[in-house]
Design a protein around this nucleic acid. Sequence first.
DNA 1: TTCATTGCAAAAGTTTTGCACGTGC
DNA 2: GCACGTGCAAAACTTTTGCAATGAA
Lengths: 138, 138
Amino acid sequence: MQSNDIAALFKAKDLKLTPQRAAVYKFLTENPVHPDVETIYNRVVKDNPSFSKTTVYNCLQALADRGLIIPVKIDESRIRYDANTVFHGHFICERCGEITDFDCAVENSRLEGFEIRRRDVYYSGLCDRCKNNFNFKE
Amino acid sequence: MQSNDIAALFKAKDLKLTPQRAAVYKFLTENPVHPDVETIYNRVVKDNPSFSKTTVYNCLQALADRGLIIPVKIDESRIRYDANTVFHGHFICERCGEITDFDCAVENSRLEGFEIRRRDVYYSGLCDRCKNNFNFKE
DNA sequence: TTCATTGCAAAAGTTTTGCACGTGC
DNA sequence: GCACGTGCAAAACTTTTGCAATGAA
């Protein structure tokens, strides 16, 4: 993603553009592997040694608040982030930990009168690679 | 739920019956409000002052491992538990924090060859009561 | 006796908060 | 000048772990 695009996107979302925010968002769009805070921080701090982890947390929060990124809370211990904001499900492999996006459609009842603001579909199990590479049961 | 039922259920799941486990499980079945560890602990310790919080954690883990209860990780900060093991979605209200169960059916693609062991559908927003009781936007 | 379970204390680990410093409008 | 963002350190919080004690078969 180009700098102008990011600038326009931030402006549209009324989000002040800072080098930290741009770096975090850029990294997420270019690395759609649902990285966690640690991973994001380690990477952006490489190019910008002055960045702090607190700021990465702040940036992620700001980006998530404006709907530019989605927090993925499928991992037990940490929050991961996804720059793909089109609704989709997330599958996490118990063995390798990799997260796979998948299309999904959910039909639900019993929520008449509710205002649904966010939907998350989380699956877990074994991805095809892990399932085929190992033949033992856990 | 009666004691004999719990005993039979535990036996069927090859889970040793201890007073702590029985109390935790009983509380969950009788209070299907998806309580968190703190709530469960505070309640069971009332009747059994010697119970420790670590043990509540242990019990919940043991029960979840055997599929007797389901960890609900829709809350940002803590794990909640559900004794209803029939697949259903969970909705959490941003304002009152209450969790509502709902029926749902998910269709998904792109997961050919995957072994899906667990599915979680989490919605959030405003429940009907909160939506109607307040008229301001957040 | 044996082995899983319990319970206390401490540890672990991520995320949040307080506060001073910078910076751009 | 002011409001906002940043960054460091410390705090907060839930959950996990180590280990001795307990208890049931």
